[in-house]
C-alpha cells in the first residue's frame, strides 16, 4: 500500500468560461500536515470541495484515500473529516447532542460512540460542558468542538478550511497543537490558511494563485529555493518615504513594508549597504539599522505573487 493518501492529477474546475482551478497536481503523504495557501478567490475552497466529493471536476482526477472523487464520492465522504471556515454545527443543540448526531450519522455503534465522545470532549476541552447549548460557547471552543466532530469517525484524512479564522492567538496555538496530535496519530491533514506564521507548522505547502500552483515544497525549501538574493531589513523613521525612494533605485530588486521595517532584496549585500547609507544621508531618512535576514514565508509569497503579477 502506497504512502500517498491524496493524489491530485491535473484537477481542473470550470464554471462557465471562468476557470477556478487550473490543472492542479500534488500529492500528500500519510500523516502529513499539508498547507494550502492563497488569496481569497484563488481556488482553495473549490479544490477542497472537489477533494471532499462535493463537486465533480471538469478535467483531471483526484484520489482521496484510494477513492476516485468523481466515481466514488460517497466512499470519499465516508473516509474524510471536514471542518469549514464558517461554524457549521447546530447552535441550538447541546455539545453532546451535536456529537451524538454526527457519531450516529457516521454509523458509530453505541460502544464506539461513547468512547469517541469521551475523546472528542477531551481534545475540545469541553468536559463538564456537555449540556451547554453550543451557540453559547466562545468562538475558539466552538472551533475545537467542530474539529472534534469532524474526526469522530476516525477519518484517515481531514480537510480544514480556514479553521482558525476568528480565533484568538492563544486558542489558535492550542488548535495547532491538536492538529499536530492528529498528524502524530497518522491522520493526514490538509489545511488552508492565510496566516503565514501558521504555514510554518506545515510539512509541505503549496501556494495557489488564480487557480494555478505557483510554488510548492516544505517551508524550508520555499525559503531557500525561490529567493536567491539577500534580503536586508532596514529600520528607519519614515518607512513610507524611504520605500518610495528605495524602490526607484536600480540595485533594489523588491521592496516591501513590514510594520516599522522595510525588506529590500538586493543583488549585492555590501554594495547595497553603502547605497542605503548614502541615500539616508542625502535625504534625511534617518536609517538606524540595516541587517541581512533569512527570508520569512511572507517574503517568499510576496516575492512570488509579485513575479506572477509582473508576468501578466
Amino acid at each position: 500500500m502506497s504512502d500517498t493518501v491524496i493524489e491530485v492529477d491535473h484537477l481542473t474546475k470550470k464554471f462557465g468560461k471562468f476557470t477556478a482551478v487550473d490543472h492542479v497536481s500534488f500529492d500528500v503523504k500519510r500523516g502529513e500536515i499539508f498547507g494550502f495557501l492563497g488569496a481569497n478567490g484563488a481556488g482553495k475552497s473549490t479544490t477542497i470541495r472537489m477533494l471532499c466529493g462535493l463537486l465533480a471536476s471538469t478535467e483531471g482526477t483526484a484520489r482521496v484515500g484510494g477513492f476516485d472523487i468523481n466515481k466514488e464520492p460517497e466512499k470519499v465522504k465516508e473516509n474524510i473529516g471536514y471542518m469549514s471556515q464558517k461554524f457549521s454545527l447546530y447552535e441550538d443543540l447541546t455539545v453532546e447532542e451535536n456529537i451524538n448526531f454526527y457519531g450516529r450519522v457516521y454509523g458509530l455503534s453505541n460502544h464506539l460512540l461513547k468512547e469517541r465522545k469521551e475523546w472528542a470532549l477531551e481534545i475540545a476541552n469541553l468536559r463538564g460542558r456537555e449540556r451547554s447549548i453550543t451557540g453559547t460557547l466562545p468562538g475558539g471552543w466552538k472551533q475545537r468542538l467542530a474539529l472534534g466532530c469532524a474526526v469522530l469517525h476516525r477519518p484517515k484524512t481531514v480537510f480544514l478550511d480556514e479553521p482558525t479564522s476568528g480565533v484568538d492567538p492563544v486558542m489558535r496555538r492550542k488548535f495547532w497543537e491538536l492538529i499536530n496530535d492528529l498528524s502524530a496519530e497518522g491522520v493526514t491533514v490538509l489545511v488552508t490558511t492565510h496566516f503565514l506564521e501558521e504555514a510554518e507548522y506545515c510539512n509541505d505547502i503549496i501556494l495557489i494563485n488564480a487557480g494555478k500552483i505557483i510554488a510548492g515544497g516544505s517551508p524550508k525549501e520555499l525559503k531557500s529555493n525561490y529567493i536567491k538574493t539577500p534580503i536586508l531589513e532596514v529600520q528607519c523613521a519614515n518607512v513610507i518615504d524611504a520605500m518610495s525612494l528605495i524602490e526607484k533605485q536600480p540595485w533594489a530588486l523588491e521592496t516591501s513594508v513590514f510594520g516599522t521595517h522595510l525588506h529590500v532584496s538586493v543583488e549585492n549585500e555590501e554594495a547595497a549597504r553603502g547605497h542605503i547609507q548614502q541615500l539616508s544621508m542625502q535625504n534625511g531618512l534617518d536609517v538606524t539599522h540595516v541587517e541581512k535576514i533569512i527570508p520569512s514565508l511572507e517574503d517568499v509569497f510576496i516575492y512570488l505573487l509579485d513575479q506572477e503579477a509582473k508576468k501578466n
Binding site: C52, G53, L54, E74, K77, E78, I80, Y82, S84, K86, F87, S88, L89, Y90, E91, Y102, V105, Y106, C149
Partner: peptide, 13 residues
C-alpha cells in the same frame, strides 16, 4: 442559511 448544510453535505448522509 446557517451553514449547517455544509457539514451535512460532506457527511455520507
Amino acid at each position: 442559511e446557517l451553514n449547517t448544510m455544509e457539514q451535512i453535505d460532506v457527511s455520507p448522509i
